[in-house]
């Protein structure tokens, strides 16, 4: 149970450059899986879609609905690829740790959801929030963007500033918390419970294991959905003319 992360500190002799190897590895694996799924799904596109294309189009329509729910489609269509990629990436990432559990060697955990690392989720949320700021400046200019901080009254300035930081934290930590907790419980069931008194507990552990895995899959999908919904809400705050 005492898993540690495979760290590679001070990489290439650079003092601040630390790698969490398992997180980075899982990030890349997850990206590759998403890429393969999406590209396979959008190969040989036809007017009469096949099964795979149908699924992809359902996802596109779904995210389109999310984007359309928070801003008008004219500005929203620029964020559709972002929303789609985020959704697929987070969904697949959340699934990875549930589907394949805890591949580890020498108490070092290699296989996990990349989203069960706070660094990943906070990076994602930071990126999204920065993107929303950037998009706000791009769409309405610096003046309008800065004005947004003193609305509705100048007194609100500190609160608005705090809100921006809080957005990053809540967006990232919500995802991290959900997925991390799910994996912890999975490994608790799978290792501590299963090996406490084998073989009886091992067999017994199957029941909560299956239940919690199903729940984790559900949570993973819900969290991916929540992440893109909030992303689009933050985007729309910065992008829309009137709030």
């Amino acid at each position: 149970m005492n898993h540690e992360s495979p760290m590679w500190n001070d990489a290439f002799g650079i003092e601040w450059l630390d790698f969490n190897l398992s997180t980075s590895l899982m990030t890349i694996i997850s990206s590759i899986i998403v890429f393969i799924i999406c590209v396979m799904g959008s190969r040989r596109l036809q007017q009469r879609p096949g099964k795979f294309q149908n699924v992809m189009e359902m996802i596109v329509d779904f995210v389109k609905g999310v984007v359309g729910g928070s801003m008008d489609w004219k500005t929203g269509k620029h964020f559709l690829p972002l929303g789609l990629t985020l959704f697929m990436y987070i969904l697949v990432s959340n699934m990875l740790g549930v589907v394949v559990m805890g591949v580890s060697s020498d108490h070092t955990l290699w296989w996990k959801s990349p989203t069960s690392d706070a660094v990943t989720t906070l990076t994602l949320s930071l990126m999204v929030v920065l993107l929303s700021h950037f998009a706000g400046i791009r769409m309405h200019g610096m003046k309008h963007y800065l004005k947004g901080y003193v609305k509705p009254i100048p007194f609100m300035l500190p609160l608005n500033l705090i809100e921006e930081v809080a957005n990053v934290l809540t967006l990232g930590l919500r995802l991290f918390g959900n997925i991390f907790a799910g994996e912890i419980l999975l490994s608790l069931i799978g290792e501590s419970l299963a090996f406490s008194a084998p073989p009886y507990t091992t067999i017994l552990a199957v029941i909560p294991m299956v239940a919690w895995q199903a729940f984790s899959l559900f949570i993973g999908a819900i969290q991916a959905y929540i992440f893109i919904v909030l992303t689009m809400v933050y985007m729309s705050h910065k992008v829309s003319k009137d709030h």
Binding site: W8, L17, F19, I28, C38, S42, M56, T123
Partner: peptide, 28 residues
Amino acid sequence: TPVGSMLVQIISFIILLALLGKFAWKPL
């Protein structure tokens, strides 16, 4: 803070975004 992991994360996500935008979302 594993800055390296963050960089890997951001870079891989941007690459993913670009590739998917070109090969998946656009044709779809």
